[in-house]
Structures are given as C-alpha cells and as structure tokens.
Design a protein around this nucleic acid. Structure first.
Lengths: 110, 110
DNA sequence: TTCATATTTGACCATATGAGCGAATAAGCA
DNA sequence: TGCTTATTCGCTCATATGGTCAAATATGAA
C-alpha cells in the first residue's frame, strides 16, 4: 500500500468536494447525529429532527447516494443507519478545529 | 478536559456545516492542495490553479474567513498559507473513505 | 377490492453562491 | 505627480439546492 501524496486530479477533487457538500447541511448533520443512536425510520427521524417527512426523506436520499447511510425496507417503513464510520472522526476533527479557533478568539478578550 | 459527546446545538451544527461548505468547492480544495507546498502569492496561485486573479482572491478570502489560511501582505503582493493543519487529516479521511467505497464498487465487477 | 399508513417523487419558489467583467484600491517607482 | 502592477470589490448572470405542497407509490389490514 504505497502512500502516494501526489496532487489529486480534477475529477478526484470534485468527488471530495461533493462529499464535503453532502456534509454541509445542518439538517443532514442532525440526521447523522440522530442516527448515531442506531437505525431509525424516516418517520421517527422526521419527528426527532423536527423536519417534514418529505424533506427528511430527501436528505436521507442524499446521504444514501453519498454512501454515508444504508437503507432497509421493512413493511411500510424504511430504516436508515450509518454505514460509513469515518463520519464520526470527520465531525470530531472539525469540531475540534472549530473549538480551538473559538477558544483562541475568546482568549484574545480575556 | 471532559469529552462530552452530547448532541450539538443548532448553532454548533451550523458552524460545522459552514466549515464543510468552505471545503465543498473544487477550486478551494485545489488552492489548499497547492498551499501544502508552502506560502504563495495570489498571482502565483492564480497561475498554478488556472483561475482568474479575481476568482482566486475571492476563494482565498473565503478560506481566510474560515480560519483555514492566513494572510500576509508584503509590498504589492499578498501571501497566503495554511494555518489549520487539521485540513490534511480531514482530506485524508475523506479520500480514504471515498477510495474504499470506489474499491468496493470496483470489486463488485471483477 | 377499499382504506389507511409510511415513504417517495414532482413541481414550484426562494435563496445562495460560483464565475466573469470592469472599476477601484493599494503599493512601489520614475 | 503620474505610471505600472497586484489585489480586491461591485455588479451581473447562471446555476444549484433547500423547503414546501400535493400527488404518486408501496405495503398491509379490513
């Protein structure tokens, strides 16, 4: 497994950008955050996040297309769950970075 | 330093989403990728990335507002450099995740 | 079949934002 | 004072996308 840190092609860059774009919506982040507890149906997710069913369904579709969540149909209901664990590390990294920045700013006014 | 994994507030979620949005543009990713080599002026970055000076300047401003890059003015030129090293880990994580997904799909056709 | 429930989809509107162009600003030099 | 260069800003257009509503779809029960 050679670690090649050569610059990414335009196509690769686009894929990375797309991935970030999927995570750039508060509602989708909230859905992911809710799904940390485990598999949930669309209806439950809509109720939990306070969004309309249609909107939640759309966002879940976006997350599924990005391969971040998986779909399982059972009777009338559709259950979604997180399939890409790297999301957690990703969010932790970003939260840490933002937290540090805010702390620096806060310290400047102490 | 207690690690509190409680759900993020709406405001926090918005900040995280904003951070991801900043990284959701191919041109900005290309700029960051170019800046890995070190500090560079706007003109050089425009030439290297193939964008117009105005456009590159705008994207650099976005990156600077997000605290990802720093600005240093010297005479006529303005130099930018990466100030948030977490970007590298972030991109590596995403690249790894995407790569794994693509590999799974590829394997399905072997 | 008919009805009820859960989810998805289509059409539409409002908003956000990337890109391009020209003008304006700032810094250095004759 | 001009003149040149590097950068940024204002304006515009085109596009992408989130949100909502209503209609469509799918599944199960009476």
């Amino acid at each position: 497994m050679a670690k090649k840190n050569r610059p990414l092609s335009d196509e690769a860059l686009l894929l990375v950008a797309r991935r970030f774009a999927v995570l750039a919506e508060p509602m989708r982040l909230r859905l992911l955050q809710t799904l940390i507890e485990g598999e949930k149906s669309v209806g439950v997710l809509a109720e939990t996040t306070g969004g309309t069913q249609a909107n939640v369904s759309r966002h879940l579709q976006t997350l599924a297309e990005a391969g971040l969540v998986g779909r399982r149909k059972e009777g009338l209901m559709v259950f979604y769950k997180i399939t890409d664990p790297s999301i957690f590390e990703l969010c932790e990294l970003v939260c840490g970075s933002i937290g540090k920045q805010l702390q620096v700013r806060a310290d400047a006014f102490r």
